[in-house]
Write a protein that binds this DNA or RNA. Structure first.
Lengths: 342, 342
DNA sequence: TTGAAAGCGCTAACAT
DNA sequence: ATGTTAGCGCTTTCAA
């Protein structure tokens, strides 16, 4: 049998409520009683029963993280992991716990969220990517549950979210290639229903337009956030009569596939094809050649999102949409000493 | 206000206890009542309050995962992530939730675990690596809390754990190199206090001994599970008068650093230096050249460990130590067409 | 087969 | 400043 508030009360010779007040740092409690109670708690190894506490307070000090359904989207891997690190750091600091819940398809995902919310298991939620017409967002919006989206909602304008300026990020990445003298720039994309994909594609197009460079449909390949995706894209994109001499790639892991594909096809990087990608995961430094990548502040993304849900739970006013700054990290994969031949 | 068991009872015109029995699939309940109650639950969108339930049942249907303190050990990254995937899959299947708790140092880690256990937040725990004289293991052992170790305890023989036969795995990896005609084989190692490191080192030595090959201290470099660790090791290990012509590397990510280091030093892989590593994460296929690696069944490791805690919680007898089979996946980094010159 | 009542450990009025 | 009491939503004897 675990030690309860009653045991502590009995030991000190006070009422349970007094012990409760000591725990809650109630103002009107004598220093002396407080000290005795604390000592007793220590001696008995007392830890408050969170379930009982939650039952009456209707709060859990727990934030749920809903994993996007497996494989493809999830395996943003290092990126995802770094995100969780940021989330965990902030939550731990605030004495909140993290509940991870899966769901292997869209239906299950909604079911899980419904359960977590309705059964009072979490005080708030973090959603790890936004899709078009996401039923989960719809549900949470209706129920007025505190939640923060990592990314951007395509359906609701005012959903609290933490995001990068992906349009600008892709614009910057593309412009970097343009500044290197690149004229034929392609885009290896992700799933088109993700807001992130759409934004980055838009930034890429904008940069081309402003520079008066051609945009060709055949230079844009849609795929998943998978290694194979980038690999396969190369067979297609490079078999064209006029293949691009530079590529903007949606994600580092996809870029690894791109590197692999290009190398097998005997293209030199960056001389024949220059590459810039996104997320700047640790491995980007270690590929051959090292990969230029836009650092999107992954850790900070997670950290900020957590901070935001916590604020919402405490009813503190928040700005609905926070933008984490990005920064292009230039490495060899995009650096040309001599401009590409036209 | 959320809908409770009382609301359901009132709607149907039965007692709350009857509703409770329906939920629990109590045998002695009429099919008719059961049907009516279920219908009402559906109509009202009833979800049991987990806190109330936990309070009386003293169980939470939650398993805690304790993260090893950050950075170094944690960043086994892909490996770690794949593990969590396995854990989550099994827990979700069994309707358990996953609570992740951090701790940035050994002290904090113990504190977190103590809190989770004493406050009744979790029914069981998963520990993600074993160190020598780990206070957390000691605590859990004393408290008789159901927990499973991923790895091996250096202190207790009978701690429930899921592990690979790391001695054999390293033995196999090393033998593969030997079979290729390699005679000077080095070892890029991890933190020496981890059981995993010790086991793999032992397997490596065993293979050398059995083949009558020399073991040299200077061919073994201790490091972290970091990219830089492998990178730096190369500067040291290859500057010797007689450097190894093959390397067994503790982890894929470390091996990436090794690849990088060797390439910069103008060694060709596998002609000058052959490489085999461990964990077989997805990226191993994509390096130049693709990396031979021992697949340790990461997903299964997590899956099995979860299964095991659940069994312990249900008081089902378990075998204290489960071994997940490994399998060497040979790729180009270790494949020699011509034996290395002596 | 079902209902009534007690109680899980805690907090929060309301007293004193 | 502290004690008394009721109740959070649920399960579980004990009765009927």
């Amino acid at each position: 049998m675990s030690v309860t508030i009653k045991d502590v009360a009995k030991m000190v010779g006070v009422a349970p409520s007094t012990v409760s007040r000591v725990i809650a740092n109630h103002p009107r409690i004598s220093a002396e009683t407080s000290k005795k109670v604390r000592k007793a708690m220590e001696d008995l190894g007392y830890h408050p029963n969170v379930m009982a506490k939650s039952l009456v307070s209707k709060t859990t000090r727990t934030i749920g993280v809903v994993l996007p359904r497996p494989a493809e989207e999830l395996l943003l891997n290092f990126f995802f992991y770094e995100l969780i690190r940021g989330v965990l750091a902030q939550l731990t600091r605030s004495n909140y716990d993290l509940l991870m819940a899966g769901g292997s398809n869209e239906h299950e995902e909604l079911e899980t969220v419904t359960r977590l919310v309705r059964s009072g298991r979490v005080d708030g939620l973090l959603l790890l990517y936004s899709r078009a017409s996401d039923p989960v967002i719809h549900f949470l919006h209706e129920e007025k549950v505190p939640f923060v989206l990592l990314g951007r909602s395509l359906d609701y304008e005012d959903v609290p979210s933490v995001d990068n300026d992906n349009v600008q990020a892709a614009f910057d990445a593309t412009n970097h290639l343009i500044a290197q003298g690149q004229k034929r720039i392609g885009f290896v994309s992700g799933p088109s229903k993700l807001a992130m994909t759409q934004d980055r594609l838009m930034g890429y197009r904008k940069a081309l337009t402003e520079a008066g460079l051609p945009f060709k449909d055949s230079w844009v390949v849609e795929g998943e956030f998978l290694l194979e995706s980038g690999y396969r894209a190369m067979a297609y994109i490079m078999s064209q009569p006029e293949p691009p001499t530079a590529l903007v790639v949606i994600d580092d892991v996809v870029a690894f596939g791109v590197l692999k594909g290009l190398t097998e096809l005997n293209y030199r990087i960056p001389q024949d094809v220059a590459i810039v990608s996104f997320n700047n995961i640790a491995l980007t430094e270690l590929t051959m050649p090292p990969l230029s990548s836009v650092d999107v502040g992954t850790y900070q993304l997670g950290y900020t999102a957590s901070q935001m849900v916590l604020r919402m739970i405490q009813q503190v006013e928040i700005t609905a949409r926070q933008i984490i700054p990005h920064r292009l990290v230039v490495r060899e994969s995009s650096l040309l000493t001599v401009p590409p031949h036209a």
